[in-house]
Design a binder for these strands. Structure first.
Lengths: 336, 336
DNA sequence: CTGAAAGCGCTTACAG
DNA sequence: CTGAAAGCGCTTACAG
């Protein structure tokens, strides 16, 4: 590897002090146009790029953020990632991607590692941390942006939420319009009431009540939040509750698994069992049958989380109101 | 945010010089057990974590690597990412994830940004860079590990390849065994012959020839490497070449799109059109019908790329032989 | 075994 | 408008 070019090399080559080169790099105003252009030319010619590590040490900005997701293997989080990165790009921000595998202990360790990295801020999605642990961490490290969790008001924590309840209401009302009254729910694992699993499940229960439909624990089945979980939960639920004519799922992956379950049990979708997903991931349209689902703009969700984080980085100590990403409505396809 | 604790704070608290604290952190041998334990206790009590930026500046190690993928929205690359990160974790390595969107100009810019970050090494998957541009970059920055591209022997470039040709041969032979002779291919966009699109397509052509089956350009359709691309290509190909009784795809996503296309065209899968994918992503088993596909262990692929990169970081200047990830064989499900 | 000095590659006041 | 000094938080020879 060629010896890396430093600011001193450029200075020597340009015949100025290295501080002047620094000023050019940072686009300071107090510079004669002549030296500025000259130094810029030398920089270009030598292909010099400032070492970000050194820069970070004095500016205390790393231009780096941590992005913590349960698992990037879930396309929902992958699509979120794109939004986060796109929002950061214009400002020169890079992203450390971290997977927690839904494990709170792992999550906490990851957060501390990121804080020591150090990063300028952290975006934390679908956190499984207890409230106390979360607040304790926020006392040590800021700013923090939370997505997919009930927005708590706490210093140093920014919040972006989605309209889970509205989405569930749309889905239930739609199914009711199609004549369904026995609508089951494929839920995520049991978690604290502030976490997204609980928020969506609660949305389903409220929606059923609002539509005057019966509901209870016997129509809900919990499983992991992927296609296999949806498949397993649907098999069990449909066997135990044959009266069900429709199934809603916590997310599209689970809905895709449910289609698979119906297929195996010989129940035609949507004629013998309607299925509605949540999120509208890219693959939803390519399910067979194509998935009817509630659309959430994941790119926008990620984009807003990053934008909020950048604003918090620029305005330390300031508290920002919750940002809400509206649902884009029900996408009617073939599954329900 | 609490004022960050530095090595000097710990030293003062422990009553030693800060260099001694540094030695404890770095587990140097020349230390009395007593001071070592004492300092460790103070570190724990204060919750001190060394600032990695400062550390990097003197060690010239950032414990950070760049991982460049076309798009993380493709589950294949998401699954690869997990392997990369898992291999890095034990060594304390973090990963900058970067998306090129298949754009060579974007890719090159990203590589330079990563090099200036700086990172200790870069893993570059499915690169669309011309050979010359790749070599020029390798002259400036090392080590570099290449995945999903014809392995070139070049100083500072490590290579991990997969058995594309063997995989395609398995698939074609399997379909031939099922009685198919007219087997079409859903290819990626046209690229240079060293890139993975070309490698797999070439594998298909060689496999057809090896099995004594006719093949030619009229049975191949190019499209983007996602489900929608597969859908579009299959619609066109099946309309133009109705004699086709089976379709192979560059990857599983395209195969899932092809199932969708058959569905719409009223061709039953596999009876009226068999479909075989490539990679066996997690979702393949949840396709409807479940996808028959050639399995590649993505986690292992990612893991090996990272392991190779770490070895190269530890042994600068040394050249390593190509690493080959074998295919795990054909996974027989329902689509073909 | 432990302390004092120098330095990693930058930026930021401070002079002039 | 530009240069010389100090410092960011560490590690690494060098003394002792």
């Amino acid at each position: 590897m060629k010896q890396k070019i430093t600011i001193r090399d450029v200075a020597r080559e340009a015949g100025v002090s290295y501080q002047t080169v620094s000023r050019v790099i940072n686009n300071k105003s107090e510079l004669s146009p002549i030296t500025k252009e000259h130094v810029q030319a030398v920089i270009r010619r030598m292909g010099y790029r400032p070492n970000r590590t050194a820069r970070s040490l004095t500016t205390r900005r790393t231009l780096t953020v941590g992005f913590v997701v349960p698992t990037i293997a879930n396309p929902f989080f992958a699509e979120l990632t794109r939004g986060v990165q796109d929002a950061g790009r214009a400002r020169g921000y890079h992203t450390f991607l971290c997977n927690t595998d839904w494990d709170p202990a792992e999550e906490l360790e990851l957060l501390h590692t990121l804080a020591a990295q150090p990063v300028d801020g952290i975006i934390l999605t679908s956190s499984r941390l207890e409230d106390d642990a979360l607040y304790a961490f926020a006392d040590e490290f800021q700013p923090l942006v939370l997505g997919g969790r009930l927005p708590v008001e706490y210093p140093g924590i920014g919040r972006v939420e989605t309209e889970n309840e509205e989405g569930m209401l749309m889905a239930v009302a739609y199914l009711q319009g199609k004549g369904h009254t026995a609508i089951g729910y494929l839920a995520g694992p049991e978690t604290a009431p502030t976490m997204s699993n609980a928020l969506r499940e609660n949305g389903y229960r409220k929606a059923m009540a609002a539509c005057g439909l019966p509901n209870g624990d016997h129509w809900v089945r919990r499983a992991t939040l992927n296609a296999e979980g949806g498949y397993l939960a649907a098999i069990e639920l449909l066997a135990a509750q044959p009266e069900l004519t429709a199934l809603m799922a916590h997310n599209d992956l689970m809905a895709i698994g449910a289609i698979q379950a119906c297929q195996e049990m010989g129940r035609r979708v949507p004629e013998e069992c309607a299925i509605v997903g949540f999120n509208d991931i890219d693959l939803a349209a390519m399910a067979n049958p194509p998935l009817t689902t509630i659309r959430l703009d994941r790119h926008r969700f990620g984009f807003e989380m990053m934008n909020l984080l950048l604003e918090m980085i620029d305005n330390p100590g300031q508290q920002f109101p919750v940002r809400t990403i509206p649902m884009d409505g029900l996408i009617m396809r073939k599954s329900g």
